[in-house]
Design a binder for these strands. Structure first.
Length: 513
RNA sequence: CGGGGUGUGGCUCAGCUUGGCAGAGCGCUGCGUUCGGGACGCAGAGGUCGUGGGUUCAAAUCCCGCCACCCCGACCA
């Protein structure tokens, strides 16, 4: 993402879908908890820009999507339009993920959107898992097709077909592929980013000579790619673990996952990594000759993360003022806001922008002085830009600027000379504070419990960890009656269990998106 | 598929009970004043009232059919 700097600033429509003339629920008094009382509205509390989280979290989420210009509903039910600002964040996710995927040795490729229906039916569990949500093309080119084609819900099958073609020797293994693509799953109930009928993702597919190689690679992706990205870039503390039989991917022998806690205490699955055993290799005849000249069946894996992470980002870090984007992810890390067009303000802002850009900071100069200051400040806060530097005549008279941190809302005066050089460290600090805040919440809202009743109760506000031996598949089914599911199984120290039969294994249960 | 609800300018909705000139807020356009926390004034543009039929002198409003969408339950990254 090239930094966007200098004039003229692109148009930023103020209020894309119209305002809400009255607050839907109650009235927000500006929270001193964020340290804003000194600066905020002097007397009467205005209608909140967003529905407060505490009033209606889903409504807040919708408000953020619209007001931060992240996404809109598409014309076909369940589809999504990702707006430029939202897409710029997705592009950053892609860039960071892609680098890690390549570090893990996988190469990008592209497989077709359309898959012969017959492919899907080759793996019994797989077809059973996906058939309810398949979009199938029966007519094309003005006539009925002899064999319907499905719009890919995931690509294990086509890729399996080609792996079989490309692999003949143990020297061809491991085969490590990844693709960035869209997939379609006809969902009954959808929510922007979290569950849409079409979404964007990366899906990795690998083939290995042995079961242990495959397992090790699935684990490597989970830890070195997914968890590393989520913790260090998204500033989201994620739990890693294995899925129960109930929650496992259709066709997998083992599913590993990263689970995160949202601001309302509910869980969101952020990424999965599957060991597919030899299920797909057998179905698609992915075989190779080993060093002894014997024909062997390969072991495959698949792993994916999607635009759902956008929803996770919003719901993990967002507050009543909007989104809060961790600096390492941010497509715009710093916005330099020229307060008004007089006394050299705009040139000073642009100069500061250039200095920051030269330091590698992703900076944007907002010199739209025809738009009121308050409107612009609010817009950038909604978008979650980590640092806003305000440059106005009063500041310049003192050789200063005003630096505002989005995370805690802190506002400080700083000398303009030498300021740029301090920004990278500030961004690191804000990145760490966001991670710390989320980590504290996760710890505070995770309960260690001993009984199923306690687990259910704890899941009302957060996560509960209960011995898997106590819960079991019967307990899992019982909790499901209360919309509480087992998010993953893990060891007491948070590591991934080798087997669900280990007596120390704990089940993490929660309500989930 | 079961239960509930809604279709009226770009957005959110009022008007319907009791038929009588199609409205408001926000957004948009122009001009002016503003500009350090969603600015304000004035002047404008913009609507086949989801759709087909019926009743009536007259239908957004009453009646019947259809369509679409939303919410709550059974599936899912």
């Amino acid at each position: 993402m090239p930094p966007d700097i200098g004039p003229p600033a692109p148009p930023m429509a103020g209020d894309p879908i119209g305002g809400h003339p009255t607050p839907r629920r109650g009235r927000r008094t500006v929270g001193d908890r964020w340290g804003w009382g000194r600066y905020a509205r002097p007397t009467m509390a205005k209608a909140p820009v967003l529905t407060p989280q505490a009033d209606d979290f889903p409504r807040w989420y919708q408000d953020v999507l619209a007001k931060a210009e992240l996404a809109d509903n598409g014309p076909v039910r369940g589809t999504m339009v990702i707006r430029p600002y939202g897409y710029s964040l997705w592009e950053r996710m892609q860039a960071e993920m892609d680098a890690r995927i390549k570090d893990a040795g996988a190469e990008n490729a592209y497989f077709p959107l359309f898959i012969p229906e017959s492919y899907l039916t080759r793996e019994a569990e797989h077809v059973e898992g996906f058939s309810p949500e398949l979009a199938v093309v029966t007519h094309a080119g003005g006539k009925e097709l002899e064999e319907p084609v499905v719009v890919r819900p995931t690509s294990e099958t086509v890729i399996g077909e080609f792996m079989a073609k490309w692999i003949s020797s143990h020297r061809d293994l491991p085969l490590l592929l990844n693709q960035w693509a869209n997939v379609v799953r006809w969902e009954l109930r959808t929510r922007l980013f979290l569950r849409t009928s079409e979404f964007l993702w990366q899906e990795g597919h690998t083939a290995h000579a042995t079961e242990s190689d495959a397992a090790a690679y699935a684990s490597r992706i989970l830890h070195d790619v997914y968890r590393d990205f989520m913790v260090n870039v998204l500033a989201m503390p994620v739990l890693v673990g294995r899925k129960t039989r109930q929650e496992r991917f259709a066709g997998a022998t083992n599913t590993l996952a990263c689970e995160a806690m949202m601001g309302d205490g509910k869980a969101l699955q952020m990424g999965t990594s599957h060991e597919l055993g030899q299920n797909f290799a057998r179905a698609f005849d992915i075989t190779f000759q080993d060093a002894n000249g014997t024909q062997q069946t390969a072991w495959t894996t698949s792993w994916g993360t999607s635009t759902r992470m956008m929803g996770g980002l919003i719901m993990c870090h967002g507050d009543d003022r909007g989104l809060r984007v961790p600096p390492r992810l941010a497509s715009t890390q710093v916005v330099v806001l020229a307060i008004r067009d007089e006394e050299g303000v705009v040139p000073a802002a642009r100069l500061l922008g250039e200095e920051l850009q030269a330091l590698g900071v992703r900076v944007r100069v907002d010199d739209r002085t025809d738009v009121s200051f308050g409107r612009r400040a609010t817009d950038w806060e909604l978008k979650g830009v980590p640092v806003r530097i305000e440059v106005g005549p009063r500041d310049l008279a003192n050789g200063e600027v005003t630096v505002v941190h989005r995370m805690a809302g802190e506002k400080v005066q700083a000398p303009i000379a030498g300021l740029a050089a301090t920004v990278p460290a500030l961004l690191d600090e804000l990145q760490a504070s966001l991670l710390a805040e989320a980590t504290d919440r996760l710890a505070a809202r995770t309960a260690e419990v001993a009984t199923i009743d306690e687990a259910r109760e704890a899941a009302a506000t957060g996560f509960a960890r209960i011995p898997w031996a106590t819960l079991g598949e019967e307990g899992e089914a019982a909790l499901a009656e209360h919309a509480v599911t087992v998010r993953c199984l893990q060891m007491p120290d948070g590591s991934v269990p080798r087997s669900e039969d280990d007596p120390d294994v704990l089940a993490v249960v929660a309500r989930a998106y």
